[in-house]
Simulated assay, not measured.
Amino acid sequence: MHPDRALLRRHVLPSAIAAAFALPIALLVLGSLRAAGAPPPAGLELVPRGASLDAYGRLADLLPLGTYLRNSVVVVVLAVPLTVVVAALAGFGIRLLEGRAKVVAVAASVVVMLVPTSALWATRFEVYASAGLIGSLLPLVAPALMGTTPLLVLIYAWAFGAVDDAQLHAARLEGASTLATWSRIALPQVRTATLAVSVLAFTAHWGNFIDALLYIRGQENFTLPLGLNTLKVLRPTEFPLLLAGAVVFTLPSIGVFLAAHRIFTDDPAAALRGRTSTTSVRTP
């Protein structure tokens, strides 16, 4: 490849994309540093006058952030591992299918993924209400019992496709059960896919506002996105509080993304399937 093209593909283009995504985060942080009660700037203001962290202190005084954070952490601690286990088992089940059965399973997963979430709200509400779960955190964890989203199941199904058939046949001849084959042979070969699924499951459950709005009752059960929604009644001069809340809400997702940055190699598709090459391995 021409050196200029390689420089563009490996450095310039990724840097431009990263800057486009980082700009809203930077504006959130800078906006949260504005002085309390100050009117919005008339033009572009990179560094607010009288910048301070007062908005974060006022936010903690105004809202029970500790309670909101605790509830959100409880949801992701329960939902993310459950999502990984269910999605991995379902994906491995699809991997073991052959011929038309596998095509039907993948097609069905895609169809389910295309169903609008809003079409399930009424049915889910009735199910949760009949089980007496409305008002608790359990409805926010319940989607993990189905792998959270079919996309995560398909990621595992595709990743398990790289597991050699000979290994599966050998395990079967040795008398290993399907569960043992999954846990001891297949799953260790798709650790990167597990990491990717964990990140996606975390972001899905951490930012789940609609389900919290539908099913949660009582401020003591509010998750962080639902609790911060109460800030929408603020006046424009108090928007630094709203932006401070947005920063508190966003930082955990950014932290998880950065912690999992090793999956983003030159060939992420190969990494998800447990394959590496001299061009895709990144040293820590």
Score class of each variant (00 low, 15 high):
Phe202Asn: 12
Thr203Ala: 01
Thr203Asp: 01
Thr203Leu: 07
Ala204Lys: 05
His205Lys: 09
His205Glu: 11
Trp206Leu: 06
Trp206Lys: 05
Trp206Thr: 07
Gly207Asp: 11
Gly207Met: 00
Asn208Ile: 03
Asn208Gln: 14
Asn208Leu: 09
Phe209Gly: 03
Ile210Thr: 13
Ile210Leu: 14
Asp211Phe: 04
Leu213Val: 03
Leu213Thr: 05
Tyr215Leu: 12
Tyr215Cys: 11
Tyr215Ala: 11
Tyr215Met: 09
Ile216Gln: 14
Ile216Leu: 15
Ile216Thr: 15
Ile216Lys: 09
Arg217Asp: 13
Arg217Met: 03
Gly218Val: 10
Gly218Gln: 07
Gln219Gly: 15
Gln219Met: 01
Glu220Arg: 11
Glu220Ala: 15
Glu220Asp: 15
Glu220Trp: 08
Glu220Tyr: 06
Asn221Pro: 01
Asn221Leu: 02
Thr223Gln: 08
Thr223Leu: 09
Leu224Asn: 08
Leu224His: 06
Pro225Trp: 03
Leu226Lys: 01
Leu226Asn: 00
Leu226Gln: 01
Leu226Cys: 01
Gly227Gln: 06
Gly227Glu: 09
Gly227Lys: 10
Leu228Ile: 08
Leu228Tyr: 12
Leu228Cys: 06
Asn229Ser: 14
Asn229Trp: 09
Asn229Val: 00
Asn229Met: 07
Asn229Cys: 00
Asn229Pro: 00
Thr230Tyr: 11
Thr230Leu: 15
Leu231Ser: 03
Leu231Ile: 03
Leu231Lys: 01
Val233Ser: 06
Val233Asn: 00
Leu234His: 05
Leu234Val: 14
Arg235Trp: 06
Arg235Met: 07
Arg235Leu: 13
Arg235Phe: 04
Pro236Ile: 07
